[in-house]
Write a protein that binds this DNA or RNA. Structure first.
Lengths: 261, 261
DNA sequence: GGCCCTAACAACGA
DNA sequence: CTCGTTGTTAGGGC
């Protein structure tokens, strides 16, 4: 559920809390969602210090002194929790617990059990991050797959990293492009609007989240979204918001957004 | 267009006409549809005698003394023609002419130019022939891909060889199974009905074609079909025939056929 | 709200 | 009415 802006702030906050701490225990309850044996995970991390925490697309990467790193995808329902080691065992729906030498612990929770944890996954740069998109890149992708719906593009983590259902709608409203537009039909100025809206919407959201939920490491803030949300009736520009299933996902948009087709 | 029954009779009739004859010339006008150079085709066959003609799935295999063989797929619009060598050059839409020592010639025609001719293609048994299907095989395939529509199965030449759009409908009516049934939902008795209907419908069709068009080597006979055909209004059992696009193909069926889903 | 896999579908070419 | 391939969408499972 968390998308790029939420995860960016999670990384900041988790970093402040655990960088420099030494791992003393790792417990993982995932079966399918872990790319190595639990033992291997434990032995790779125990006695290492956390070096850095970064967001990579929709995943968080936790780097340790010595080079090992853990990559965590929260999927739909995952979240983090900071607690003390002695109560970490009581946390409901915990799927991963990393305990530190100072008695604190970082827990990943997930009621669905869909979280994915990977130790040192192959560093394959699948796609550029949403914050590093260029017009040239968009033109190249759009020329190769001209019939793709523009919302499908924004959601495809193999083409652009970090955007989920909610921010896709926000970006498209900001760019005044209908989610059902075919990317190959976008005129140059629409591509420009899109390439500008992607970072501007996401960066503004990061600012808002930092302001509204300074310590957030779980859940998401969505009160400031402009069109994506069932409580919203009209866009800031005044048009009624349309709710529709697009690409099997609930989509909010308005007729201010031009359909290029 | 011809399916297993038509092709079976083609093979019989062509065999009677050309087995034992010696090739003196081979002319091929296909560009993409031939797997070797025209020269290679010619030199492989000239001075060889035709040994046997068999049907393999929807293709005919023409075997020659010495081991070479030609495999021909007529695609949508191809057909055979027997004529004399001196007029073979005048045959419209001919894509392949095999001339024999006795002055006769076998011509493959195709107004679309889509016929495929292969010299000694890799003998990879892609799928069992429709006439050799067992219940065990069906169960195995259906368990592996349980959601596939049963008509999709019958049409997939990689799963079962020889059936086209028309006979798929006939077989499913005979088995009283709706074309839209999911193969994984077919109860054992429906699978039994299917495994029985496949050969029985096809063999009966072979008999009918032999009777109605004894010398056929081109085109197809469809007058005796029970549900597949736009002129048919009711099945032999009395139900009105439904015409519907299924899997992008015109499909005829009735509500006598049970939908397992 | 996320991602993967399978299947269905459309479009095009041959 | 055939067969590929490619790209896009829809649905279910995890």
């Amino acid at each position: 559920m968390p998308e790029l802006p939420d995860l960016t702030v999670y990384a900041e906050n988790l970093g402040k809390a655990v960088i420099g701490k030494k791992v003393v225990r790792v417990e993982c309850r995932l079966e399918k969602g872990l790319n190595v044996a639990p033992d291997e995970l434990s032995s790779a991390l125990v006695s290492r210090e956390v070096a850095e925490i970064q967001r990579v697309g929709k995943e968080l990467r936790i780097e340790f002194q010595g080079g090992a790193f853990l990559q965590i995808h929260l999927m739909l329902a995952g979240g983090f929790l900071l607690t003390s080691d002695n109560v970490a065992g009581d946390v409901g729906n915990s799927v991963l617990t990393v305990s530190f030498a100072d008695g604190s612990a970082m827990v990943v929770t997930d009621p669905k059990g869909w979280v994915k944890v990977a130790l040192n996954p192959r560093f394959d740069v699948k796609a550029p991050d949403a914050l590093n998109i260029t017009a040239d890149y968009l033109h190249a992708v759009f020329q190769k797959q001209p019939k793709m719906q523009v919302k499908a593009f924004l959601l495809d983590q193999n083409l652009i990293g970090g955007i989920g259902n909610a921010y896709a709608d926000e970006i498209l409203w900001q760019a005044r492009i209908s989610p059902k537009s075919a990317v190959g039909k976008l005129p140059p100025d629409a591509v420009e609007a899109l390439v500008a809206s992607i970072p501007s919407v996401l960066k503004e959201a990061v600012e808002e989240i930092r302001k509204r939920r300074p310590g957030i490491i779980s859940g998401e803030v969505r009160d400031f979204l402009k069109v994506h949300g069932s409580s919203l009736k009209r866009s800031p520009a005044g048009s009624p918001i349309i709710k529709e299933q697009i690409l099997s996902k609930v989509t909010y948009y308005t007729d201010e957004q031009i359909l290029y087709k």
